[in-house]
Design a protein around this nucleic acid. Structure first.
Length: 268
DNA sequence: ATGGTAGGTACCCTA
């Protein structure tokens, strides 16, 4: 089973890139963030033509939006309001790649970026981000069972480890790597005894990025990236983790997203 | 030290 997560930054603008990606990588399940389209304009026919018959999506005009595309049937499709807002940042669904194994529930998340000023008193968007992570930290153990096969993934907009940013020291006051975010994120990570599927394969001492700003003159030269995208699994799935790949080359595609796709392969 | 780009939308917001 191959799962792929990608902050696509407009599914309608990048529908052709998505088609090429799916035909090259052949993931079984695909989670998209920042689809930026209301459900009535979601490109469902194109995605079915790519070979993904089972699709769950939750979008709004202009901002945010999450979607799950699958070669397996999806059931238990659910969408969630978070922090009292209906802003289309969380969708989940269940599928069963192997009839002899337990079904897998995937939670596709788009955690708020949090704005520029890293002070929750001065910046409502930063407060919203902190509240969102705190809410997930309470919600998962209260509503999901860590002994089930669960994947939580997506654009979490936090780079937790020192080697998840280009400079730990220079990033400590930059939203996505501030101590308050790192502490909250650690609590979220511990809430279900999650396994970090990317770092399961790539040592914590090695730099690993999934996002590079659009604003850099030459993103490859500066290489000031961050690992904002994550794939976490519950313990029952740990032994079936098989491989991870971060499609860095996608950042050089024509009209790229600022995030690149992350793939996790599971045995069977 | 500062400003730089991108997408969607409607003349500005978010990232």
């Amino acid at each position: 089973m191959r799962i792929l997560t990608w902050n696509i930054n407009s599914v309608r603008l990048r529908i052709n890139l998505l088609g090429e990606l799916l035909s090259t990588e052949s993931p079984d399940v695909v989670c998209l963030q920042e689809t930026k389209t209301p459900d009535e304009h979601f490109p469902l026919d194109a995605i079915r033509d790519f070979g993904y018959e089972h699709v769950a999506f939750h979008g709004m005009k202009g901002y945010n939006g999450v979607a799950i595309l699958s070669k397996y049937p999806l059931d238990e499709i659910k969408t969630y309001d978070r922090c009292g807002k209906s802003d289309c940042r969380h969708i989940s669904a269940r599928f069963q790649p192997d009839a002899n194994k337990a079904p897998i529930t995937v939670h596709n998340l788009y955690i708020p970026a949090g704005g520029y000023e890293p002070d929750p008193v001065l910046n409502d968007k930063f407060q919203h981000k902190l509240d969102f992570v705190a809410e997930l930290t309470e919600w998962f153990p209260a509503n999901q069972n860590a002994s089930d096969s669960i994947i939580a993934l997506g654009d979490m907009n936090i780079a937790p480890l020192e080697q998840d940013v280009w400079s730990h020291k220079q990033m400590l006051n930059v939203v996505s790597h501030t101590p308050i975010e790192l502490e909250l994120f650690d609590k979220f990570f511990n809430s279900m005894n999650w396994v970090d599927a990317m770092r399961h394969f790539i040592p914590a001492e090695e730099k690993l990025f999934s996002w590079w700003s659009y604003r850099a003159k030459d993103w490859t030269k500066a290489n000031r990236g961050r690992r904002l995208d994550h794939v976490w699994v519950t313990k029952p799935l740990e032994d079936s983790l098989k491989a991870c790949s971060v499609l860095r080359e996608a950042r050089s595609w024509d009209r790229p997203s600022d995030h690149v796709p992350v793939i996790i392969d599971f045995a069977s």
